[in-house]
Amino acid sequence: MKITTWNINSVRLRMPLVAHFLKTAAPDVLCLQETKCRDAEFPMKDFASLGYKHAAINGQKGYHGVAVISTKPLRLVEKRDFCEKGDARHIAVEIESQGGPITLHNFYVPAGGDEPDVEVNPKFAHKLSFLDEMTSWGADGAAKGRVALVGDLNIAPLEHDVWSHKALLKVVSHTPVEVEKLEKVFRAGKWIDAMRHFVPSDEKLYTWWSYRAADWAASNRGRRLDHILVSEALGGALQRLDVRTEARGWERPSDHVPVTIELSE
Score class of each variant (00 low, 15 high):
27 P>W: 04
32 L>M: 10
32 L>T: 10
33 Q>C: 03
35 T>E: 03
36 K>P: 03
36 K>S: 05
39 D>N: 15
39 D>K: 12
40 A>F: 11
41 E>A: 15
42 F>T: 04
47 F>H: 13
51 G>R: 07
53 K>F: 04
55 A>V: 11
57 I>S: 12
59 G>E: 11
62 G>A: 07
63 Y>S: 04
63 Y>C: 04
66 V>H: 12
68 V>H: 03
69 I>L: 13
70 S>F: 11
71 T>W: 03
71 T>S: 13
75 R>Y: 07
77 V>Q: 15
80 R>T: 14
80 R>S: 04
81 D>T: 09
83 C>M: 11
85 K>G: 13
85 K>H: 12
88 A>Y: 02
88 A>F: 03
91 I>E: 08
91 I>A: 02
91 I>F: 10
96 E>P: 10
96 E>Q: 14
100 G>E: 01
100 G>P: 10
101 P>K: 00
102 I>C: 01
103 T>G: 01
105 H>S: 01
105 H>D: 01
109 V>G: 00
109 V>H: 00
110 P>N: 00
110 P>L: 00
111 A>M: 05
114 D>C: 01
114 D>Y: 01
116 P>L: 00
116 P>C: 00
117 D>R: 06
119 E>L: 13
120 V>S: 14
120 V>W: 01
121 N>H: 08
121 N>Y: 06
124 F>C: 03
125 A>C: 07
126 H>L: 15
128 L>G: 04
129 S>V: 02
130 F>K: 05
133 E>Y: 06
136 S>A: 12
137 W>M: 06
138 G>I: 05
139 A>G: 13
142 A>Y: 06
143 A>P: 07
